[in-house]
Simulated assay, not measured.
Amino acid sequence: MGRSLELSEFKRGTMIGCHLCNKSISEIFLLLNIPRSTVSGIITKWKKLGTRATQP
């Protein structure tokens, strides 16, 4: 099974923006209709790496 499509830079930025506005992961995934694991992964990577860009 292949990988799914990547999220746009805008959607990743929206997730980070919601997180910075003190929204919980549950609220973010309900607002944006994106799987909870994806939201959690993006926020974790952002905290660790300091960037929301895709990594090779």
Rank of each mutant, 00 (worst) to 15 (best):
K45C: 03
T44D: 12
K11Y: 03
T14G: 03
H19K: 08
G17Q: 05
G2P: 14
N22M: 06
T54R: 14
C18N: 07
W46G: 02
H19Y: 14
H19Q: 09
T54I: 13
S24H: 12
N33I: 01
C18A: 12
T51K: 14
P56M: 10
K11A: 02
G17M: 15
I42W: 10
S8P: 06
L7A: 05
N22R: 10
Q55A: 08
S4M: 08
K48M: 13
W46R: 00
R52N: 10
L31Q: 12
W46A: 08
K45I: 06
L32H: 02
L7W: 08
T38V: 15
H19R: 12
R12L: 04
F29H: 01
T14P: 04
N22E: 00
E9L: 02
G2W: 01
T14R: 15
A53R: 14
G17C: 14
P56R: 06
R3F: 13
G50H: 02
R12P: 00
E27L: 07
S24V: 03
L30A: 04
L49R: 12
T38C: 07
S4W: 11
H19D: 07
I42C: 10
I16Y: 01
M15C: 04
S37G: 08
K23S: 10
S24A: 02
C18V: 07
P35W: 04
K48E: 12
A53E: 15
I34D: 03
L5A: 11
G17V: 09
S4R: 14
I28V: 11
L49E: 02
L7D: 08
G17S: 15
T38D: 13
S24R: 12
G2Q: 09
K47E: 14
I16W: 04
F10K: 04
I34A: 00
P35E: 05
Q55M: 04
L30N: 15
I28S: 09
S37H: 15
G41Y: 05
T51M: 12
I28G: 00
H19W: 09
E27N: 01
I42M: 08
N33K: 05
